[in-house]
Amino acid sequence: MTRQRGDVVVETRDLCMHFGGVRAVDQVDFTLFDRELRCLIGPNGAGKSTFFKCLTGQLRPTSGEVLIRGQEMTGAEPFEVASLGVGIKTQVPNVFDGLTAEENIWLSARRWHGDARARALTAETIERLKLGDIRRMLVGRLAHGQRQWVELGMVVAAEPWLVLLDEPAAGMTHEETFRTAELIEEINKTSALIVVEHDMQFIRMISRTVTLFHEGRILMQDTMEAISADKRAREVYLGHRA
């Protein structure tokens, strides 16, 4: 299937995820186009991560549908979503602590390629993300920001066409955050992205269109400037933060 800019790659229809009485995600209709870079923002508990987990198969939605490139993926297993060529980074760092940085990244590339190509891709990724110094170190021994980078390396090494990142810059230093923004721009040259973020500065660095979540629903969807100017948006979110 050839891809064109403008194809819908992610779509949710009337997506709901309820935990008992808590409507963490409530009737969300969401559309992402190919090569788009979309930021999801919203106050803590707005339902961003829950929405993210419904997309990635970590949660089975209470109702509604998730379509990825037109394919019905509601309630699919995470490996099925990933097997479509989707790169995923969760909010809580998920890495292989007992393995080296290199092995972590190799495991990602090896999912798609034979050993030789996987090793070449691993070396490329390590170079690209400047992980050379830590490649032989056990990931469990690395600092938080470095672990995040190893996880980003795993995402990149799979050469995904769709990338989903939940708070990629959380816990990073200023410098690391800046480099993450650069990396995201670079990934966006070949892939569509959804980036959940808290850090307003970070969002200003990368954003095109921003979707604002509030109490499980999409409150607004616009440019960062427009959202910053909106009174309602400021009340639920920007007021307490930026």
Binding site: F79, A82, I88, F96, G98, L107, M154, A158
Partner: peptide
Amino acid sequence: KFGRVCQAIRENELRAELLGYD
């Protein structure tokens, strides 16, 4: 490869799934 993936699952099953391994 099989053994390496098994060790990866031992370390973090969710991550292995998110890489696309069943």
